[in-house]
Design a protein around this nucleic acid. Structure first.
Lengths: 221, 221
DNA sequence: AGCTCCTTCAAACAGCCGCTTGACTTTTTT
DNA sequence: AAAAAAGTCAAGCGGCTGTTTGAAGGAGCT
């Protein structure tokens, strides 16, 4: 229910109805709705990590095999039918974190991100700047996460597309090859990189922080 | 309020408080909360498209310039301080569509996607298969959308990173170069592509549809 | 001035929300 | 078998939700 409707929209009455239990059961077995949600989130995260571990091909594998395995994990995490609702729940937390999100990031997301960064580093070498490394790692992650995140949009844009196991296979292959080519291109370019000159004839313009919190740039009243 | 808290969580009382209006004003000027939200969504979408049009460099530009301009638009749509709340609202709709989302997809998202596909096609040639074209286009879009989508996650993973105009500049450059290298790599590979053989000695295994709706694969009771 | 039309307002409405209560049944322990 | 603990249940609580009401204000007109 939480995965399908979100924390707020999933009511304790609906949850208990589906579970065949009385509404008071939630407050008896768990303290309240929020604590129950916390347990669900923790359980979901554990099952996902259990089935798709952080580093599926740690030792003795070529960089390409490691990257491919990581890409497959990133995707299967969200499309494995047995873990579909887990994936949706995590996805919901990624898009709109609750109080339990910090916990998920630290115990789950960060490990995935680190493993991906490590795998990417094997293509770029150790001298790469941390910013560029992160951008590259994000480029791979973004390609994977687009599909679960914008699932409903893609379904509407391309109604005929159905996600099958074969499609996932082809997608893993595409993202892996696209990324490897991208990484190699980036490495080459980073080596012979020229200093970018801002438009105001030579003098670099002041960098402006782009705030996105509520204090800035409200809609017109 | 809708952008910050979502449709459900933003209450009419909060909205009217901030607007300095009476709660009945919503039902007088608009019919109800949902209609108001529809107007807001439509307005937000219009402002975004107005400021960052679908195809910023349509004619007489090299493929690279077109792609770079599109990438910049994809990012600025969500990080422009003047349009930050617009971006969040659209982002929220992308992650969890309401009844008004179909309208947004058809009047907004689809055009962006089509323009990106067109720009990508210039790198791949016309003989490319529609699936591969879509995958490539999605690879570019995914790299851009990761940043607004997982804004809060990235902020937690890398607390020191601050998004500045300079960072956006470098990011646009990275995604453009990464994508071009990826596209060229894909083109090369697509030309000399070998038929993939499934593991079950030669005979292709049956492709399984991965359903992600509620009817399949529920959590344990 | 009187009149009409548009707009604002405090108050209240019905409905759903998470949560609690106290009586009841079932299971476990002594 | 008696006592204690654990679990279930219908009913109801206060609080918040979107929406409605009927009265009051105010600008522009003849």
């Amino acid at each position: 229910m939480f995965a399908e409707h979100g924390f707020r929209a999933a009511t304790v009455r609906q949850i208990c109805d589906r579970a065949g239990a009385n509404v008071a059961a939630i407050n008896y077995h768990f303290r309240d709705k929020e604590t129950l949600y916390g347990e669900v989130v923790r359980y979901a995260s554990a099952r996902v990590v259990e089935t798709y571990p952080f580093d599926p091909k740690p030792k003795g594998a070529t960089p390409e095999l490691r990257l491919r395995a990581l890409v497959r994990n990133y995707l299967m995490r969200f499309f494995d039918p047995n873990l579909a609702w887990y994936g949706k729940l995590i996805c919901r937390e990624l898009a709109e974190p609750t109080d339990f999100f910090e916990e998920i990031v630290e115990s789950d997301v960060r490990h995935y991100a680190d493993q991906l960064t490590e795998a990417v580093k094997e293509f770029l070498g150790d001298e790469i700047s941390s910013e560029r490394l992160r951008m590259c790692s994000n480029s791979v992650a973004g390609q994977c996460l687009l599909y679960p995140y914008t699932r409903l949009i893609l379904a509407r844009l391309y109604p005929d597309d159905v996600i099958t196991t074969d499609f996932i296979d082809r997608l893993v292959e595409h993202i892996t090859q696209f990324s490897i080519a991208g990484l190699r291109g980036t490495r080459k370019r980073a080596a012979g990189k020229r200093r970018r000159i801002s438009r105001t004839n030579g003098r670099p313009s002041a960098s402006q922080i782009l705030k996105t919190n509520r204090s800035s740039a409200r809609p017109p009243d």
